[in-house]
Simulated scan of single mutants.
Amino acid sequence: MEPMTVNVFLKFVLFGFVLGVSIGSANSSCFDSSTDLCDGVIPDIPYLATRDPTVMVTNVTFNWIFCDVYAINTSMWYKSKTPMSTSCPSMFMCGTKFPIWMDGQNPDTHDGLVNRTSCLRDFDSCCLHTYKLAAINCGEFMAYCFVDLPSNCHQRYCFDVKKSEPNTDITHTPTLLQTEATLSNVSSPKITQPAKATISLPDTDPHQWPPG
């Protein structure tokens, strides 16, 4: 092998080694947080409103800036008020051509930091390719860190933006005294007793039978 060819080959090997080290360190950064993720400042998932499985791709969301290869950074935490979709979406939904969904369940608050796998939806399969991510449930929001991301358009993660949640915000609970006072103010309808019927009997001797 000629010296110049050897030099080029060594440069490629060195570049691959450096790239591998940088990718490895970036992947581990999802789990190397020195502060509490739930108390830290975390950016929102970009373009969240267009990521619901009921939102079809449009000329707007088909723009390259909506692709997660450009919209999201690897090994960086993002938060969302709504969880990532955990069921296979249809093609051309979630505002993209090839949606990505979580193959598993979103964590509960007591689960802490967990590893998850996501799936790429295409024409023939619900899971043509998989991507790794980390997730944590902070109670008021979900947080996700993407270990690896799509390498090209048009692929993006789905979130259940439009899924309704139970209303647990009770701002007023009436006390027992308030309930009794409310009931006491309700007027009861007056009930008219029927008149007693009177029967007149002829004056007869009770010991005489038959009366006559």
Rank of each mutant, 00 (worst) to 15 (best):
V21T: 08
F62A: 12
D32G: 13
C127Q: 00
S22T: 14
G104C: 12
S75D: 00
H110N: 05
P194Q: 08
D39S: 15
Y47V: 07
C126Y: 10
G104M: 02
C67I: 07
I72M: 02
I42Y: 00
D160M: 09
S118D: 03
F62H: 10
Y131C: 00
V55E: 11
L177T: 10
K162C: 11
S85D: 09
T86Q: 06
F141C: 02
F98Y: 14
V114W: 07
L201D: 00
S22Y: 12
Y47Q: 15
D39N: 09
I100S: 03
V57F: 03
Y157P: 03
H110P: 01
N152R: 01
M76W: 07
H110W: 06
D160N: 13
T117A: 02
P166S: 14
N167I: 06
S87Y: 12
V69D: 15
D111Y: 04
R116G: 08
C30Q: 05
V18F: 15
K163T: 08
F98L: 13
A143G: 09
T82V: 04
P3N: 06
W101N: 13
V161L: 03
Y157S: 05
K11D: 12
N115W: 04
N106F: 01
C145S: 15
F9M: 12
C30P: 05
I42D: 02
F146T: 14
T54M: 02
C94H: 00
F159S: 01
K81T: 03
V60Q: 14
V41I: 04
S184T: 10
S164K: 15
D111C: 15
G139F: 11
P107M: 11
T168L: 14
V8I: 08
D124R: 08
T109C: 15
P46K: 08
S87I: 09
W77D: 00
T130V: 13
Q193F: 02
V69C: 09
Y47N: 13
S151R: 05
P3R: 04
Y78R: 01
N59C: 12
C38H: 10
P99H: 02
S151I: 07
F31K: 00
K11M: 12
T74N: 11
A181R: 13
T86G: 02
P83W: 08
Y144I: 01
L14P: 03
N59L: 04
C67V: 15
K190Q: 11
C119W: 05
I170D: 10
H110L: 13
F98T: 14
P211D: 00
T109A: 13
T96M: 06
T96N: 10
M91Y: 11
F141E: 04
V186I: 15
V186G: 00
T192Y: 01
S164N: 10
D205R: 14
